[in-house]
Simulated scan of single mutants.
Amino acid sequence: MTECKSVSTPLCTTESVPSTLYRSIIGSLLYLIALKPKIMYSVGLVARFQSNPRLSHLQAAKRILRYVKGTISYGLHYIFSSALPITAFSDADWGGSLPDRKKAEYIAASQAGSQLLWMHTTLANLGLHFSGPPKLYCDNQSAIAISKNPTLHWKSKHIDIKKKRLRWHGGKEGQGEKELEKGLKEETKQPFIWVLRDMFVGETRRAQLPKGFEERVEGKGMVVKDWAPQLQILGHESIRGFMSYCGWNSCMESISMGVPIAAWPVHSNQLRNTILVIKLLKVGLVVNDWARRDELVSSSTVEIDMKRLLVSKEGVDLRKRVVEMSGAVKQLVEEGDVSRMELDSFVAHITRS
């Protein structure tokens, strides 16, 4: 290299590529992840550079496209009529360090559990049935012990924010349902509809109602144990609030119907949706804060937040704001609106022969 030309910087800074092209490739690849989970890591990696992509990033994205072309006949085939088992395996090692290994194993199991619940919920919304509850296998006894231990050790306090994903379905049977029952029936004293969808199909249920609950709320509340016409319920004139985990569809339907949201995020994208609803759109309030998602929500908390939403001035202001937003949303899909025309154009494009 004694005869090479000198450069002003140690790394190339002029090989930028059109960001629009790069983003369109990444957007297409993100849709493919559902059918080709093997590309999830590589797509997630190249998706980090959408704001200022370089030639090397574009080359990496094109390599993924070449892989997709070679495996075009591969994919996941979900059979609607069959009962699917959902199983996940978790394993991790923090650089071979024996003292830290159990913490890495636990955090990895927590993240795997979050993805497992997301996939289970997504498939259930698509109408698929399951042969049993989702199973997560972990080969580290210390990580398993931490997930079962209701009391944190001082050495594991820094992973406190992770543990809820593993303990959400592992707490004392029926404890959360009893607190919610007391808050709805005895303290809030407001009529309600409580939808309890099973986490899986079979003899064993994820959550049992407190004994005699339905008899005690007769005339005051209604319990739906299966699929419910959510959009139809939200569109009824008597509905003044919607307590939700803040899945994307639930948020969109509630806002479209002009119903304020009592947010109770648990995992995956529900936190981001909650921030959108509470902080940006300002059409709801938080029942259980994300930072305290590992704590049992008491009946008094349910009472306070439900009264805020249903009978306070704050609730009146929230309903007024979300009703105005509902009108604006509905106008967007009316014939002749620019957004409707763009949507029709998109549908025509993807359905062309």
Rank of each mutant, 00 (worst) to 15 (best):
H158V: 07
N149K: 11
E177H: 08
K157R: 15
E181S: 11
Q175W: 01
I146H: 02
N149D: 15
T151A: 08
E179W: 03
T151V: 12
P191V: 02
K155G: 02
T188R: 04
W194V: 01
S142W: 10
L166M: 15
G183P: 06
N149A: 15
Q175N: 02
K163N: 02
R165W: 15
H158A: 06
V195A: 03
D160F: 14
A145F: 10
W194R: 06
Q175P: 02
E173N: 06
I161S: 11
E186T: 07
I159K: 03
T188V: 08
W168S: 15
H158R: 09
I144Y: 06
E179C: 02
I193M: 09
S147A: 15
G170Y: 05
R167M: 13
P191H: 06
W168K: 14
R167E: 14
L180P: 02
W168P: 04
S156W: 07
K163E: 03
H153Y: 11
R165A: 11
A143M: 02
G170K: 13
R165S: 12
L166P: 13
D160M: 10
V195C: 04
K189Y: 00
P191C: 08
K178Q: 13
I146L: 13
K157T: 14
G183T: 02
N149I: 07
K155L: 12
Q175H: 06
K182H: 02
N149L: 10
K157L: 15
W194E: 00
W168E: 11
K164H: 14
H153F: 10
Q190R: 04
H153S: 12
H158T: 08
P191D: 05
I144T: 09
E187Y: 06
R165E: 13
G170Q: 12
L184F: 05
S142D: 08
I161K: 12
N149Y: 01
V195W: 07
W154V: 00
Q190I: 01
L152M: 06
H158I: 09
N149S: 10
P150Y: 11
K148F: 00
K163G: 00
H169T: 01
N149C: 11
